[in-house]
């Protein structure tokens, strides 16, 4: 039981991080039907910028906030300089633009910052809590809390505010949304900004557990993408559940199966879903997908 619980804690912690990243994928997919492969780079920016701002003498909470704002600025730059000018290009073309952006950001990070790995102090220390024989770090609780709160705020934004409803409308039917006066281009911009903030938040939270470096976004981005596919692209609830499913599946595979196969678990799950259940757990089947 202690063993199972230990695997579960590991899966939930990592899964909550995947969920935050997956939310970013879903937001942008909703607004523009494109997959933003630079999502992982926002995670890297969140961690690396916090590390370097803190090293420059800025208080940690302020450094984290500035790092999130930097990721938002980068996300807006991708949309303004990469996506918006290519208006009318195919979705595949735009996805390639995001891949290019991710390579550029990664390269710049390696030059502007460095190629070493860096850690941050945990928010509430590193003394593990013991729960029925399994150990849990306080940082994991922070990750659960922040991910849960973020999910609630996003739900409130989309369900209760005019802006959120306008974004949903633009996702369901861009033409009709435009006809009722919604500026769909602004909707895409806001979705990128939000996705940048979510990614960077994940980066700030995970760095005390797993050091950050300029290439950290590659695998985290892919796992977040897997989570978004499993949950159903475009579904907020799906992104959260998908993240937890992938995280727990990985931890259980590492714990109970041969650990060498662990890396493959996320990708086997994606393949199964793409073949058998392409709309994911919570995806809307009614919407035409291009």
């Amino acid at each position: 039981m202690a063993e199972f619980l230990q695997f579960l804690f590991s899966g939930l912690t990592v899964g909550a991080i995947y969920a935050l990243i997956a939310l970013g994928f879903s937001l942008i997919y909703n607004a523009s039907h494109l997959i933003n492969f630079a999502q992982g780079e926002f995670v890297m920016i969140g961690g690396m910028a916090t590390v370097f701002l803190a090293a420059a003498g800025i208080e940690l909470p302020l450094a984290a906030l500035l790092a999130v704002l930097l990721a938002v600025a980068v996300a807006i730059a991708i949309e303004r300089l990469g996506i918006a000018p290519a208006k009318g290009a195919s979705v595949v073309g735009l996805i390639i633009v995001t891949i290019g952006a991710s390579i550029l950001i990664r390269g710049l990070a390696g030059i502007v910052w460095d190629r070493n790995f860096h850690s941050l102090p945990a928010i509430s220390g590193e003394e593990p809590l013991v729960v029925m024989g399994a150990t849990l770090l306080p940082q994991s609780l922070w990750i659960f809390g922040v991910t849960g709160l973020t999910a609630l705020l996003l739900w409130f934004f989309f369900a209760k505010t005019l802006w959120g409803k306008a974004m949903m409308a633009a996702a369901y039917n861009p033409l009709a949304a435009q006809l009722v006066g919604i500026d769909t281009r602004r909707v895409v911009l806001v979705s990128f900004a939000l996705a940048g903030a979510l990614g960077a938040l994940a980066g700030v939270l995970i760095t005390p557990l797993a050091p950050t470096h300029f290439q950290v976004g590659v695998m985290l981005g892919l796992k977040g993408f897997a989570a978004a596919i499993v949950g159903g692209l475009g579904s907020g609830l799906g992104a959260i559940v998908g993240g937890l499913v992938i995280g727990i599946a990985e931890a259980m595979a590492a714990g109970y199966l041969a650990s060498a196969y662990k890396d493959a678990v996320a990708f086997v799950i994606i393949l199964l879903f793409l073949v058998l259940w392409p709309s994911g757990l919570f995806g809307l089947r009614g919407i035409e997908r291009v």
Binding site: S10, M219, S259
Partner: peptide, 14 residues
């Protein structure tokens, strides 16, 4: 063993 880019190795160490 753990995978490339893994962020938590507690299952293997358990």
């Amino acid at each position: 063993q753990y995978g490339k880019g893994d962020t938590d190795m507690t299952p293997q160490l358990t």
